[in-house]
């Protein structure tokens, strides 16, 4: 038996609403992590402080990568809407590559810090830093997996109303991560030198 169009519209309407709610809970999650970080920021256990450890220029590069990926993701959604399958796929691949570059830079930063003896075991401040930034990174990794699945799905089923709606949710998630990163960039990296 074939599914009626109205029925599937109703389902996606609910799914999108539910997804917004999930994003709301994720905001609370990040807010708690931000609060924790800000409270523990000074607790360096007589180790290096944020100003000495973080390089805002490096973080700016990460920011540019992620912002660009958000932009290409948005354009990919538009392309999908206008049924330009090739272009949408190309832009989605670009988005994922940019995300991959972002997460590589982040992991590289983590590795450098740890090699310098500045791991999450060093102080409460660094525990807070690794957890806050790491949680965002984990979200990015999940986003990358999701994006890859979207890619395969669109290649397989083509541009349908189904794939369009599924893509909308992914793109919401990706923009949301961008937004969280702006806060991380401002509070953790720019705030370090204050």
């Amino acid at each position: 038996m074939k599914h009626s169009v109205a029925r599937s519209l109703e389902k996606y309407d609910k799914a999108e609403f539910g997804f917004w709610l999930y994003l709301l809970t994720d905001i609370i999650l990040f807010a708690s992590l931000f609060a924790t970080y800000m409270i523990l920021r000074g607790n360096t256990a007589s180790g290096e402080s944020a100003a000495a450890l973080f390089d805002p220029k490096y973080a700016l590069l990460e920011t540019v990568l992620l912002l660009t990926s958000s932009f290409t993701c948005g354009i990919a959604g538009l392309a999908l809407r206008f049924k330009h399958k090739r272009m949408a796929l190309g832009l989605l691949v670009t988005t994922l590559l940019l995300g991959l570059a972002f997460i590589s830079l982040e992991l590289n930063e983590f590795a450098t810090l740890i090699n310098e003896g500045q791991s999450w075991r060093t102080s409460a401040f660094l525990s807070g830093f690794f957890t806050l930034v790491g949680t965002h990174g984990l979200h990015i990794i999940i986003g990358l997996i999701w994006g890859a699945v979207m890619l395969a799905y669109i290649i397989k089923t083509g541009v349908t109303s189904d794939s369009l709606r599924k893509f909308t949710l992914f793109s919401l998630f990706w923009h949301f991560l961008d937004l969280v990163w702006i806060f991380i960039f401002t509070i953790v990296y720019l705030g370090a030198s204050l």
């Binding site: 924790t36 409270i39 523990l40 607790n43 360096t44 256990a45 999450w120 075991r121 060093t122 102080s123 409460a124 401040f125 525990s127 807070g128 690794f130 957890t131």
Partner: peptide, 21 residues
């Protein structure tokens, strides 16, 4: 999760030393 990180990965969110609170 933070308490779990303290216990599993040796972080210092709520320990009584190394800056924990």
């Amino acid at each position: 999760a933070l308490l779990g990180l303290d216990r599993t990965l040796g972080m210092h969110f709520f320990t009584s030393d190394t800056g924990g609170n």
